[in-house]
C-alpha cells in the first residue's frame, strides 16, 4: 500500500478518556483539545461505554490507543481483534490509531502486559512485516509507542532508540513517543534519555505521552498513578526542542484524581510548549 505523507497534524493538548470523568466532561465541557480512548474499553457490544463515547465524540476529536494488538508476538495477528478495531474506527473516526511496540502473550494466551522485545534484526523484521499487514488491513498508518522496560535481553544487539527508529522507517509507520517511558527505561537501564530523544526521527513522532510513575529506589515502575515528575517535564521540553510541536497528552490510569487536577497538569504542558516555541522565534 502506498502511503501519502501529509504534514504532521497537531491536535494540541489532550487527556486519556477515563470512565471516572465521563459525567464531568459532558457537563463542564473542559478545555481539552482532544481525548485518547483505550480501544479495548469500547470493544464491547453497547451500554454506557458507547453512550458516553458518542456524546464526548460530538465535542472532541479522539484518537484510539490499544493495548493488545501484540504486534511483536510470535502468534499470528489476531484478525478478529483487528476487525473489531476497524469497526470501532469506522464508527468513531479517530484521528489515528496507536498501540505498543511490545508483545502481550503467545500460544493464544494474553498476559495483559506490555512485554519488551529483544532489539534484534529478527525482531525488527518480524514487527515491520506485521505493522505493514495491520496498516494494510486498517487502511491507514498506525502509531507505535515505546514501552517502559525493567530488563535487558542478552540477545539485544542495538539500543532501543535504534530499534524503534528502524522499525518506524522500514514499516513506514509513526511513533507515539512516551516521554515518561523513556525516562523510566533510562533510569532502569542506565542510559542517557537525551540519546534516546535525539535519535527519534522527528517527522514520524505524531504524539507524546506524559505520565507519572513510582520510584522504588533502584528502579522505577511505570504505574501511571502519580503526577508527572520534574525530570520528565524537563525531558518533555527537550523532546519538543528536538521534534517541534507535537500533539501531547497525559495518561492517568490509576489513583485517578478529579478532572481539574489533570487540567492543571495539562496547562503546565501548554506553558512549557509555548515557551519552547518562543525560544524558536527568538
Amino acid at each position: 500500500m502506498a502511503h501519502i505523507k501529509l504534514e504532521r497534524p497537531n491536535l494540541g493538548f489532550g487527556l486519556g478518556l477515563r470512565p471516572d470523568h465521563y459525567e464531568a466532561i459532558l457537563s463542564d465541557k473542559p478545555l481539552v483539545d482532544w481525548f485518547e480512548i483505550l480501544t479495548e474499553n469500547y470493544l464491547v457490544p453497547g451500554g454506557k461505554p458507547h453512550y458516553f463515547l458518542e456524546k464526548i465524540r460530538e465535542n472532541y476529536p479522539v484518537v484510539m490507543h490499544g493495548v493488545s494488538m501484540s504486534i511483536g508476538s510470535v502468534d499470528p495477528l489476531d484478525k478478529d481483534y483487528l476487525k473489531q478495531v476497524k469497526l470501532l474506527s469506522d464508527k468513531i473516526k479517530p484521528r489515528w490509531i496507536s498501540d505498543h511496540l511490545c508483545w502481550t502473550g503467545m500460544l493464544g494466551k494474553n498476559m495483559h502486559d506490555l512485554l519488551p522485545l529483544p532489539y534484534t534484526e529478527e525482531a525488527i523484521n518480524h514487527v515491520v512485516d506485521r505493522i505493514r499487514q495491520v496498516q494494510d488491513f486498517l487502511g491507514q498508518q498506525i502509531l507505535i509507542e515505546n514501552v517502559s522496560s525493567y530488563l535487558t535481553y542478552q540477545q539485544s544487539e542495538i539500543p532501543e532508540w535504534q530499534f524503534i527508529r528502524e522499525i518506524s522507517e522500514r514499516a513506514d509507520c509513526f511513533i507515539l513517543l512516551d516521554v515518561n517511558n523513556v525516562y523510566v527505561s533510562a533510569i532502569n537501564h542506565g542510559f542517557d534519555p537525551l540519546d534516546y530523544i535525539s535519535a527519534m526521527p522527528k517527522d514520524r513522532v505524531y504524539q507524546l505521552h506524559l505520565a507519572g510513575h513510582c520510584n522504588m529506589g533502584n528502579y522505577i515502575i511505570d504505574t501511571h498513578d502519580h503526577e508527572i515528575v520534574d525530570p520528565v517535564w524537563k525531558l518533555y521540553v527537550d523532546t519538543l526542542r528536538h521534534c517541534g510541536d507535537v500533539s501531547t497528552m497525559i495518561e492517568r490510569d490509576d489513583n485517578i484524581p478529579p478532572l481539574e487536577d489533570l487540567l492543571k497538569e495539562l496547562s503546565r504542558a501548554r506553558e512549557l510548549a509555548s515557551s519552547v516555541l518562543d525560544e524558536k522565534i527568538l
Partner: peptide, 13 residues
Amino acid sequence: MSQLFLLQNKFQD
C-alpha cells in the same frame, strides 16, 4: 524454531 519464539515462550512460562 525462531529465537524470538523461544524467548517469548520462556518469558511466558
